[in-house]
């Protein structure tokens, strides 16, 4: 037993020297990524903040109306956003939304192609599955440290951590959707002369679309659940007041920021649900 504890395998040390090596050899590369992403997010936040909040709300309402044609939803969104402005969290809400949407966009852009590739090659999914499990189960704080070192304080480590945490959802559900396409639909596609790419765009993706959409919705929710954690590494947004409230034991501030997060979550969930999904339950 003593021998076992005395001869410690330096797993942590290996990881640390790997990160050190990354910082030493590729810091320019990471700085560049960091700069580009930080600029992108801050300029998006700035441009939304530049417009009067009521105009932004109006634009959101028009968009939602085109998606859902539901008066109830419009009323709910209007009330929620006005309450958020009233509580003084408009800027934080915008920052959070931009972060969530960017993280989702990256996850989807990277995750869907990976999911499709995995569905077509069973060996790839065999490799991916433990990696995805690892990414989702390892406590987020753990990879917050290296991302912080690599990308510095600000939105970017928050964004990267969020993507790492949330990307498993679109990958898994795209994989599931594409690999569950009924074989007779694939046969029909082939029998009528589809090429490989036509088969993907005309049969596999449309057939997998409900599952892929569920993946995107899940991805948004997972991203949102990371806002508080992202605030720890300096990402602005609704997570910041929560952390501040925790540090100063401020019940009222914590409650209000919490309410704002919940409202954002409900709004995103309702907007993301496609009409057909709502019908099914």
């Amino acid at each position: 037993m003593d021998w076992l504890t005395d001869n410690k395998i330096p797993l942590g040390a290996w990881m640390e020297s790997f990160i050190d090596w990354l910082v030493g050899s590729a810091s320019g590369f990471f700085d560049l990524i960091s700069f580009v992403l930080e600029t992108m997010i801050t300029s998006m936040v700035d441009s939304i903040m530049w417009a009067p909040p009521l105009a932004v709300i109006a634009i959101v309402l028009v968009g939602v109306w085109f998606l859902h044609h539901s008066i109830g939803l419009l009323v709910f969104i209007t009330a929620s956003l006005l309450l958020i402005i009233n509580m003084g969290y408009w800027e934080e809400t915008v920052q959070t939304l931009v972060l969530v949407i960017s993280a989702t966009a990256f996850s989807v852009l990277i995750g869907i192609p990976i999911g499709i590739a995995a569905a077509h090659r069973s060996w790839l999914y065999t490799i991916l599955r433990p990696i995805l499990d690892l990414m989702q189960t390892i406590p987020t704080f753990v990879y917050l440290i290296p991302t912080l070192i690599l990308f510095g304080l600000g939105y970017v480590p928050g964004l990267i951590s969020t993507v790492i945490f949330a990307i498993a959802a679109p990958i898994r559900l795209t994989y599931l959707g594409v690999s569950k396409v009924p074989s007779e639909l694939l046969e029909a596609g082939l029998a009528f002369g589809c090429t490989k790419s036509k088969l993907l765009y005309k049969v596999e993706l449309p057939a997998a679309m409900p599952s892929i959409m569920a993946g995107i919705t899940q991805c948004i929710m997972l991203s949102l659940s990371m806002v508080v954690v992202a605030a720890l590494v300096g990402a602005d947004g609704l997570g910041k007041p929560v952390i501040r409230a925790l540090n100063t034991v401020n019940i009222s501030q914590g409650f209000e920021a919490g309410i704002a997060i919940v409202l954002v979550a409900i709004m995103l969930d309702r907007i993301c649900k496609t009409p057909s999904m709502r019908k099914e339950g």
């Binding site: 009924p182 046969e187 029909a188 029998a191 009528f192 449309p206 679309m209």
Partner: peptide, 14 residues
Amino acid sequence: VSMVFQSFALMPWL
């Protein structure tokens, strides 16, 4: 050559 399937194999989204 074209084909007709037992389970119809129609695309449900079209």
